[in-house]
């Protein structure tokens, strides 16, 4: 049963990747001419024609698609129209920066979001619950470009404590990862609270008290594992928003990651680079969803035995 489950998951993953590749390929080629975006407006018709031939843009679309697909299978993502370097190389250079920013933001989100959700649930209806929930709404309602600018104004220009842009030291990491993490923290706090509230009312929680289990044990050993399915789902779904959020945050803070690279590649209609970036982000989402699925089975024996 389990082998069949994993084979079907793998097949679904491959189908999704094929779909993403095809979709980006078609959309990028039907919504505008990359030559117009890349070459200067007064380029001669012969120069334009030569560019097309050089990058094989004069061939029928289906032929371009087949050759692109075949190259992908060998790990060749194509070359950037802007600097002629392999697209994969440019992406891999920037990817660790985004993973560092995303990873640290996620750490902040989890460390703030889950404990505040638990505290709110344990103090349901009290002042502390209302305060935590108001902050959570603030977290996910505040646009991250705006929060980023506010932070720069306060900590860079006002207090002169943190650098406003670039990367290199730990203090460079703080403001962008906080800006990115606070949105996810707000969402996580809300979902953790409702998941915990549902579990705290269950008869087995009462039985845990009846056994004489101390409050800490009841919350972390009995309640949290049962509340973890919706929490893990939200954690997985928000990995995507970390990447999309990185586009904005990396631009605001001048962070050299794949989010900023995507913005410049899209503006320049750099087909190979945009396709490569979209593919990498999709694979990232697909893998994180697979991990979430795997986590369900680990966390809940009922799901494990149904597979």
């Amino acid at each position: 049963m389990r082998t069949r489950f994993w084979i079907s998951r793998l097949l679904r993953t491959l189908v999704t990747i094929c779909f993403v590749v095809t979709f980006t390929f078609v959309v990028l080629r039907t919504t505008g001419d990359p030559v117009v975006a890349l070459l200067s407006p007064d380029a001669l018709p012969s120069e334009i024609e030569q560019f097309r031939i050089q990058w094989k843009l004069d061939r029928p679309m289906i032929e371009q698609y087949i050759s692109y697909g075949a190259n992908l299978l060998t790990g060749d993502f194509g070359r950037s129209y802007q600097d002629g370097r392999p697209a994969l190389q440019s992406i891999l250079e920037r990817l660790p920066n985004t993973l560092l920013l995303g990873g640290f933001s996620y750490l902040i989100a989890i460390l703030i979001g889950i404990p505040s959700g638990i505290v709110a649930a344990l103090n349901r209806g009290r002042l502390i619950d209302r305060a935590v929930m108001s902050l959570a709404v603030f977290g996910f309602a505040m646009p991250n470009f705006f929060l980023g600018i506010l932070l720069i104004l306060a900590f860079s220009f006002g207090l002169r404590m943190l650098p406003s842009a670039g990367m290199g030291t730990f203090s460079h990491l703080l403001m962008p990862s906080f800006t990115l993490g606070i949105y996810v923290a707000g969402t996580l706090a809300r979902f953790t609270r409702s998941a915990m509230l549902e579990v705290l009312d269950k008869p087995y929680m009462k039985l845990a008290r009846a056994k004489g289990a101390a409050p800490f044990r009841r919350v972390f050993v009995h309640a949290l594992p049962n509340a973890s399915i919706p929490i893990v789902t939200i954690v997985g779904l928000n990995l995507g928003s970390l990447v999309s959020g990185a586009v904005v945050v990396e631009t605001v803070f001048g962070w050299p990651g794949i989010g900023r690279l995507l913005v410049t590649a899209v503006t320049a209609r750099d087909l190979a680079l945009v396709q490569g970036l979209v593919l990498v982000m999709s694979i990232f989402m697909i893998v994180s969803n697979l991990v979430v699925d795997l986590a369900y089975g680990i966390l809940d024996p009922r799901i494990r035995s149904s597979r």
């Binding site: 087995y204 039985l207 009995h222 049962n226 966390l299 809940d300």
Partner: peptide, 14 residues
């Protein structure tokens, strides 16, 4: 010690 009405729900499922 206490025993509840719903035996299935009294035990922690995980």
């Amino acid at each position: 010690a206490l025993i509840f009405q719903e035996p299935m729900a009294s035990l922690n499922p995980v």
